[in-house]
Amino acid sequence: MKVAITSTGNSLESTVDPRFGRCAYFAIYDTDSKAIAFIPNPARHVEEGAGPKAVQQVASYEAKKIVSGEFGMKIKPLLDSLKIQMIVVKDPEKKIMDIMEMLNH
């Protein structure tokens, strides 16, 4: 299963980006193959509608879960309709590798 993690950078040492719509990168982690890909978020600089754009993006990677620091109120119904689960991690110190490790429980 694929999990999207919002990331501040493109390495395993990067921390979880607290913003969903305007995160710098999406780390797409495949929990089966253990492969990870960092994809720059094309929505991060748009004036408006970054959230819905980011949702589209994540959906196109076929991610079933998203890990981020926050989701705007408008995002929840969108993700609900796509049956993508939201996981809110509030610890700003958490690194992508930490999240991967937790997902491998």
């Binding site: 890990v67 993700l79 609900d80 049956k83 689960q85 939201m86 996981i87 999240i99 937790m102 997902l103």
Partner: peptide, 23 residues
């Protein structure tokens, strides 16, 4: 256990474990 918050998109299924740490 891992202090995360999460929602349950599968409304008809009971939440059995943490989607992040598996607790």
């Amino acid at each position: 256990s891992c202090k995360c918050f999460f929602n349950n998109p599968e409304k008809d299924q009971k939440v059995g474990e943490c989607p992040l740490c598996g607790d």
